[in-house]
Design a protein around this nucleic acid. Sequence first.
RNA 1: GCGAAAGUGGCGGAACUGGCAGACGCGCCAGACUUAGGAUCUGGUACCCGAGAGGGUAUGGGGGUUCGAGUCCCUCCUUUCGCACCA
Length: 849
Amino acid sequence: MPDYHPQDLDRKWQLRWAESRAFEVSADPSRPKFYCLEMFAYPSGHAHVGHLRNYIIGDVVARTKWMRGYNVLHPFGWDAFGLPAENAAIKSGIHPEVSTRDNIAHMKGQLQRLGISYAWERELATCDAEYYKWNQWLFIRMFERGLAFRKKSSVNWCPVDKTVLANEQVVDGGCWRCGTPVETRDLEQWFFKITAYADELLDATKHLTRWPEKVLTMQQNWIGRSEGAYVKFPLDPESGVPSAGHIEVFTTRIDTIFGATFVLLGPEHPLVAQFAERSKDPAGFKRQAHAFRMQDRAARMSGDIEKQGFDTGFRATNPFTGQAVPIWVANFVLGEYGTGAVMAVPAHDQRDFEFARKFNLPIRVVVTPDGRSAASDSMTEAAPAYGTLVDSGEFSGLGSEDAQKRMTEWALGRGIGEGTVQFRLKDWGISRQRYWGTPIPMIYCDRDGIVAVPDDQLPVRLPPLAQFTGRGDSPLAQVPEFVNVTCPRCGGPARRETDTMDTFVDSSWYFYRFADPRNDAKPADPAALKYWLPVDFYVGGVEHAILHLIYSRFFARVFRDIGLVDHSEPFTQLLTQGMVLKDGAVMSKSKGNVVDPDTMLQKYGADALRLYVMFVAPPEKEVEWSDAGLEGSFRFLSRVWRLVDHWAGPLADRSTQRDDAPLDAAGKALRRKTHDTVRRVTMDIEQRQQLNTAVSALMELVNELYSFSEETATGSPARHATAGAASATQERAEVVTVVAEALDALVRMLAPFAPHTGEELWERLGHRGGLSAARWPAFDAAVAKAEQIVIPVQVNGKVRSRLTVPADTTEAELERLALADPPVMAHTHGKTVRKVVVAKGRLVSVVVQ
RNA sequence: GCGAAAGUGGCGGAACUGGCAGACGCGCCAGACUUAGGAUCUGGUACCCGAGAGGGUAUGGGGGUUCGAGUCCCUCCUUUCGCACCA
């Protein structure tokens, strides 16, 4: 057998897998399915080893599941729309479609050279019209159900480039391209009504038992449910307010309402404009309010901003106390949360406290720990804790929680308030004034208003674009043939929507499309969806913990409500893999610390790279790249190679193998190690996803096989003593038997990590049909268990001796043996044995004195 | 500020429900085989005392529960991540 040349094996087996279409699957209800998915890739150009970790983890699981007898769906695709390609086009003039296709081709080659077991026939790219057609179809279904709607909202606006900026494109409060301070503008945008599912998305997190706790907490915080009440504060006509009416506030602390000594409006609040007109100095009023609004996004990026505010001069009435309270405008009140107005309770809210002290507004203490009235003079900070109500009229003496219930009822009875639930989660704005995305399939007609493009006219294709300037509004508005259409309803002249969809729409349902990616009548056939979905195992970076994973959970519910699927959660198990660092930093082109996988593949082959990345740390952890570690993995594979080489001769003739052959001690020990390794590796991969310890278990088995080879006088595999080994073991059927069992198991368990080497060695061990025909090794729990075990004996908590005993030794017998053991007696001599604790099969603990 | 996770040899990391801390690998040291080896194999490698047998100390610091704690509880420190004026 030739020396280990992994590069040749890579080529050989990758070609074979492609020719035999080894990983293509079809739905087969007679077999259990397993849908293994790694987050699809943004085709940025070249993948570095950090990107690849994700795919290797998925591949180890997928390949193991194949061998475990599952019908495994393991597809891959490209999240191909997006800003970087368009920005590159603005710089270089190369059309995003061209650069994207180039990048896809390159990255696909990288994944194939790594030997990832993808069903390439199902490959998709979101920039294919055959894919984004269904974005549009889904958008229209959502529009019909009121889940897609238009709304005016505040966006970041660069006055120089005349374009909307995503939050990520605002750098230190300025435009990322020209540095101009960003303004806030109100624009009509398309939204998805994700808030309709806020409660459900939150509640269901408790059923996601196979998701990382961390991701669930992040989602829970993001959704941010808080229970409270709306309360109406009537405007005080005596203060000269422009109209009758009220200010509605949202509060989670209605129990403190007797301490509400003023009301705060956010600068966006509709009443602010009305008050401005009626104020003594309308221009000054507007100027201040405007200043707050400009402050908002820009200032928040750069850290804390000082609490500022001004008195409107108008008043409202606290409906509980009946007292008039001044109305102020404050920069820290958010327009988009609650009602955009708050009742200020300076005694019990830190922000209100600071505000009151700064502007000398009254502070009333209405909740105390002991139920006794207190003055506010000596307070240095707010007292937000729950307690007993004081100076709160008929509610005085109640505990905070009790009071919240009673006061909400009281308000409801008088029609001035009601209990409510608020979410931090906002509706999802999906309009982008960009070219490289899915056109929103809507038409504006002067007569018929907003009209959806009829299904039979889908897809609305992205037109070619002559120039990428990066200036002005939506680039699609520059293409008259695209914009000017006839209204599908009345046939009159109409305009197309020129915004495109957020690319997160594309990635929110691609896992459904994989079930049936060429369907041209539906997003996917319901029967295929029913068989393959939900995804059993999903791998990706934590950076998607919130956006992508919440949007996908939202889309799953939309699919459900449209009747396409009958589940609610798309991903049963989620694994968030850690990043690969180099020199302590995330790999990135700009930092120049990128490790190029192709260089590594040329040097060590795909298997060593895969094995190293799996072995270096548990999948969720961050790892520091090490060339030396990679070499270690290469050495290990060479070691396995030589081991198989060493035994290939004796094992060639399997007829000498006899399962009933009597085993000597060494044989038994090897057999036990083999079975125990199968047990450990199976559990590590399938249940714990602890792939690093699975690899170390395999290394232990290899070490054991090397020792065994020495002991059985067949010589060391290190020295290629092939001929000698063959004759020496010819008549030793039991040796052949246990070694064959060990190597067969070893090679099959190694295969998910190192598939090329695995296939080659499996063949060399005399098996036909390749690993796709091989089954995962089984283990016998009785064999895996040791006959003789070592029991440590502690005296006063310190290990003083070790007993080697049969595994089934009784507790009484263990106690007797321990106390009679000379090293133990040396420590118990002359002392009183107070207590003996026997943990069966584990340890004996003796307490003396 | 709020929330979450994590602190174990020179390094990456093991230790399943409390039960021999440091598996496995990297690095390092010694030996073997070699013309040579940066190939390969074998042995060693937490720290301190001791020639040795052996003894002592160790899982961020301090305290607690327990026959027994890396693991459970309290407290403090550090690091990383997420949300950050959410009323």
